[in-house]
C-alpha cells in the first residue's frame, strides 16, 4: 500500500481487499467489553477540516481513539485559517507539533494531494473529501457494507465484489463519493451504473469505468445495490433541474421503486439524507436501507486505514530500502 490515501484510484485490488479484511477484524473489536486496541499508542492523528462535517470527522476521531492514537481536531472555523493563514503554514504548524497522520477535508479538489507531495509534512495524508474530487474512505466503507451484505461477513474475507451490479443515483456531478466509488468498485470487479439527469453527469464521464443511464426504472431490477446520493442543495445554485418535485419523481427512491429491486438488493445512502427528496421515509426506515450500518462500518474501515498507514514501519520514500535494518528477532523468524 502507498504511504498516503489520496484517491480510491490509487488502490490495487489487493490493497482494497486487505483494507476490507482488516476492517472486518476491526469491526469485531466493537463487540468487546473494552473497545480499544493499543496499536497506535503515542501516535498523533490530526483531523484537519476546512469544510463542515460531522459524521466523517467523528468517525475518524472514533477510529483513531479506538486504536489509542492521540487526536487533535482542527477546524478552519474559529482558527488561524479564518485570519488568512495558507494551507502551507497550517501544514508546517502541524508538522512542528509532530503529526503522524493528517486527515484532511478541504473545499478545493487536490488539496490533500498538494499536502502529501509538497514535502511540508512527513506524516501520512488521508483524504477525507476534497472538493468535488474524491472521498476514498467513504468508498471503502461502502464497499465494506456491500461485501458484508451481498457476500457475507465471514464468507467475504479475501473476496472482492466480482460481478455485483451497483447503481449510483443522483448528483454525480458534485459527488466525490460517486467518483471514489466508481474507481474502487471497478477495481473490486463490480459493474457500476450511474443514473442521473443529464445536467448532473460530469463532463468526461465516458472515460470513467462505468455505464451511464438516465432512467432509474430501467436499471433498478438489475441492481444488487442502489446508492442514493444526496442532492446537494448548497451547490444547486445553477439550477440543474426544473423543480425538486420533478427530480424526486424521476430519480427519487420510494416504496414502489424499492419493490421492483431484486429481493436481496440493498439501498445505500452516504448521509445526510434528504427525506422526501432523493429517498422517502418508507425506504430510509426499511431494513434494506443500510445508512446507519454504513456509519458503524465507517469507524471499522477508518480504523483499518489508519492501522495500515500508521501501524507498521514508516519507510522513507526517498531512500528505498538502501539500508535494510538487521533482521529483527521476532517470533516469526523462529
Amino acid at each position: 500500500m502507498k504511504r498516503h490515501l489520496i484517491s480510491a484510484a490509487d488502490l490495487t485490488r489487493d490493497d482494497a481487499v486487505l483494507i476490507l479484511d482488516t476492517a472486518e477484524e476491526m469491526a469485531r473489536v466493537a463487540d468487546r467489553p473494552i473497545k480499544k486496541l493499543p496499536t497506535l499508542r503515542g501516535r498523533t492523528v490530526v483531523n484537519l477540516f476546512f469544510e463542515d462535517s460531522t459524521r466523517t470527522r467523528i468517525s475518524f476521531e472514533a477510529a483513531a481513539k479506538r486504536l489509542s492514537a492521540d487526536v487533535i481536531n482542527f477546524s478552519a472555523k474559529g482558527s488561524s485559517v479564518s485570519k488568512g493563514e495558507s494551507l502551507k503554514d497550517t501544514a508546517l504548524t502541524l508538522e512542528a507539533m509532530g503529526a503522524d497522520a493528517v486527515v484532511i477535508r478541504h473545499h478545493a479538489s487536490g488539496a490533500p494531494y498538494r499536502l502529501a507531495t509538497s514535502g511540508w509534512i512527513d506524516g501520512a495524508v488521508v483524504n477525507a473529501g476534497d472538493g468535488t474530487h474524491e472521498h476514498p474512505t467513504q468508498a471503502l466503507l461502502d464497499a465494506f457494507t456491500m461485501r458484508r451484505r451481498l457476500v457475507g461477513a465471514d464468507a467475504g474475507i479475501g473476496r472482492d465484489l466480482d460481478g455485483r451490479r451497483i447503481t449510483i443515483v443522483g448528483d454525480v456531478l458534485h459527488s466525490r463519493v460517486a467518483r471514489s466509488n466508481v474507481h474502487l468498485l471497478h477495481t473490486l470487479g463490480a459493474e457500476v451504473t450511474l443514473v442521473a439527469p443529464p445536467t448532473l453527469v460530469p463532463i468526461g464521464v465516458e472515460h470513467w469505468p462505468c455505464q451511464v443511464a438516465y432512467h432509474l426504472d430501467e436499471v433498478l431490477p438489475k441492481s444488487d445495490a442502489v446508492m442514493m446520493l444526496r442532492v446537494q442543495r448548497e451547490r444547486m445554485n445553477a439550477a440543474f433541474f426544473p423543480t425538486e418535485r420533478e427530480y424526486s419523481r424521476r430519480y427519487g427512491l420510494d416504496g414502489d421503486r424499492m419493490a421492483r429491486m431484486p429481493g436481496h438488493a440493498i439501498v445505500m445512502h452516504p448521509g445526510p439524507m434528504n427525506r422526501g427528496m432523493e429517498i422517502t421515509a418508507q425506504v430510509a426506515d426499511s431494513d434494506r436501507c443500510t445508512a446507519v450500518e454504513q456509519v458503524a462500518n465507517g469507524v471499522s474501515t477508518r480504523m483499518a486505514v489508519l492501522y495500515l498507514l500508521l501501524g507498521g514501519a514508516v519507510f522513507d520514500s526517498k531512500a528505498t530500502s538502501a539500508t535494510s535494518p538487521a533482521p529483527a528477532r521476532t517470533e516469526e523468524n523462529k
Partner: peptide, 17 residues
C-alpha cells in the same frame, strides 16, 4: 495489534480472534 515490534515492519494483515 498488541505486538511490540509493529513498527519494525510494514503493517501486517490481521488474523481472526
Amino acid at each position: 495489534m498488541y505486538r511490540d515490534d509493529l513498527r519494525m515492519r510494514p503493517a501486517r494483515a490481521l488474523a481472526r480472534t
